[in-house]
Nucleic acid binder design. Structure first.
Lengths: 195, 195
DNA sequence: CGGGCTCATTAACATGGGTTAAGAGGGCTC
DNA sequence: GAGCCCTCTTAACCCATGTTAATGAGCCCG
């Protein structure tokens, strides 16, 4: 039961130390859930109420355009928060799909109960603020890369940032993350190998 | 003296109500500074120590590539926080230029003293968390738009999101924000007018 | 072992947007 | 009013990347 919780506690404490009572409340709030390959934690079109913490496996966040094309925004490795944040924050219908790419496990928290803990544990709110700040900084880097770098150098950055991930998932997921077609990624790979 | 402070207080209270003592401390911490057109609040290459709040005018955040090309990330209207957040959070050298596009005014806070207030005023930390969450959501939308939409529809979105701004700044700033050359923006405009 | 899958590669062609260059219009200053 | 600078536009050409289509490799399953 809640086998992933010690891992969560370890990750949280490395960001901002929480009082023991707060950890206990978090543990009581969490449910642990297992995801098979291709299962969804959240889907576009739904109302959403939860945030998750990845304890095992791998997820992706992707956006599906009206034409049906998919664009991968982020990969989530163990130790990350995973949440349809925009929908939760704005109370709007979710636009972002969160899907397991391999068999995975999450600790899941009801968002309203989680945020209600902020009132009693400012340490938790601080932890969340810090995590979101870091995510904001990552997004800034990615935004700049998308506009100023070529697809090839974004691929090189991806390889450096996600060691080993290339072997675990199909290349079209990586292409989608880079914002190019699988055909073009294939060309880039040919070009990199050829010289 | 600190003419912009009532405006800051109004904006802050519309996000999360702060205790009066906290407002007083904030006011004591702030210095007000005037910026002429093209003055910088922060420049790439510096160490940075402050966050600002725009009370009048207009700023842009831009990234300058190694080749010297500029890419505009954000425009800051009155009522916004403005800060080189990535550099502040990571303690690294700043990469992002923050520049006034018209004569402007900021309320400026030393970042370390501002964040130290979080310990005594969780309400302030909550306010910051909420603001950053909203900014994160905006960045998500922008990221998706950059990858999935054509330059023309990004321009249409820009016009809807920034009413009136087009008349205030040169078009090359808008082009840069859209991630295209001024030449191409001109083509888009011709195409939109022609039909 | 043969027939479908899925995924990656390759080629031919199409297109969005970059680059270079030239010119036009508006607003300065002297 | 002449010259100058800054901004925007237009045109010609070029390249990165998308699209469509065909081929091949690996794999699963009956």
């Amino acid at each position: 039961m809640k086998a992933g919780f010690p891992f969560l506690k370890e990750v949280f404490n490395s960001i901002n130390t929480l009082p023991e009572v707060c950890s206990v409340e978090l543990r009581n709030l969490a449910i642990e859930h297992e995801y098979a390959k291709f299962d969804y934690f959240a889907e576009a079109g739904e109302q959403v109420y939860s945030i998750g913490f990845v304890t095992e496996g791998l997820f992706r966040a992707f956006y599906r355009s009206s034409g049906g094309d998919e664009y991968n925004k982020t990969f989530f490795m163990p130790g990350s928060f995973i949440a349809p944040l925009t929908a939760l924050v704005r109370g709007k219908q979710n636009q972002i799909n969160l899907q397991a790419l391999i068999p995975s496990r999450l600790l899941i928290f009801p968002y309203d109960q989680f945020t209600r803990l902020y009132d009693r544990y400012p340490e938790l709110e601080r932890l969340v603020r810090i995590v979101i700040q870091q995510e904001w900084a990552k997004k800034e880097e990615r935004e700049i890369a998308l506009v100023t770098q070529t697809a090839r150098s974004r691929y090189e950055t991806f390889l450096a940032d996600h060691p080993g991930l290339e072997e675990e998932i199909p290349q079209y997921h990586i292409a989608s993350y880079l914002g190019v077609t699988p055909i073009h990624l294939s060309r880039i790979r040919a070009e990199m190998a050829g010289r």
